[in-house]
Amino acid sequence: MPEKRVTVASKVGLHARPAATVAKAAAAQPVAVHIAKAGGDPVAAGSVLNLMTLAAGYGDEVIISAEGEGAEAAVDAIAELVATDLDA
Rank of each mutant, 00 (worst) to 15 (best):
A16W: 04
P30N: 04
N50K: 07
L49I: 15
A74V: 03
A79R: 10
A36W: 05
N50H: 13
D76I: 01
E61Y: 02
M52H: 04
A83T: 05
N50Y: 07
A19N: 04
K4C: 06
T84F: 08
A19V: 02
V6K: 01
L51E: 04
P30F: 02
V8P: 14
P18D: 15
V33E: 07
A77C: 04
H34Y: 15
E3R: 13
E69F: 00
I35S: 03
A27F: 08
P30H: 06
A88C: 01
A44E: 14
A9P: 12
A26W: 03
R17Y: 04
I35H: 05
M1S: 15
P18I: 09
D87H: 00
T7N: 08
E61M: 01
S10M: 11
A79I: 05
L54V: 03
A79Q: 13
A28G: 15
S65Q: 09
R17W: 02
G57C: 01
A73V: 09
M52E: 15
R5P: 02
V48R: 04
K24T: 13
A9T: 01
A36G: 05
A66G: 13
K37I: 05
A77H: 03
G59D: 08
D41G: 03
V75H: 10
A20C: 02
G40K: 11
D41P: 01
A16C: 01
A36V: 02
P18K: 10
A9S: 06
G46T: 03
V75K: 14
E3G: 00
R5E: 15
L86T: 09
A45K: 12
Q29V: 03
L51P: 07
K24D: 13
D85C: 02
K37F: 01
G59S: 13
T7Q: 15
S10G: 06
T7Y: 13
A27H: 09
V12T: 15
A79C: 07
G46A: 02
A77W: 07
A19C: 05
V43W: 06
E72H: 01
G70S: 10
S47G: 10
A9G: 05
A73L: 09
A28R: 10
T84Y: 07
E69I: 07
P42Q: 09
Y58M: 10
A20I: 04
A71I: 02
G68Y: 04
I78M: 12
A83K: 08
I64W: 14
A20R: 11
P2K: 11
V8E: 12
V12S: 15
A23I: 10
Q29S: 12
T53E: 12
T84W: 08
T84V: 08
A20G: 14
A74H: 01
A23N: 06
E69D: 15
V31A: 04
T53M: 14
A38G: 00
G59F: 14
T7I: 15
G39K: 03
A74G: 04
E72N: 07
T53Y: 07
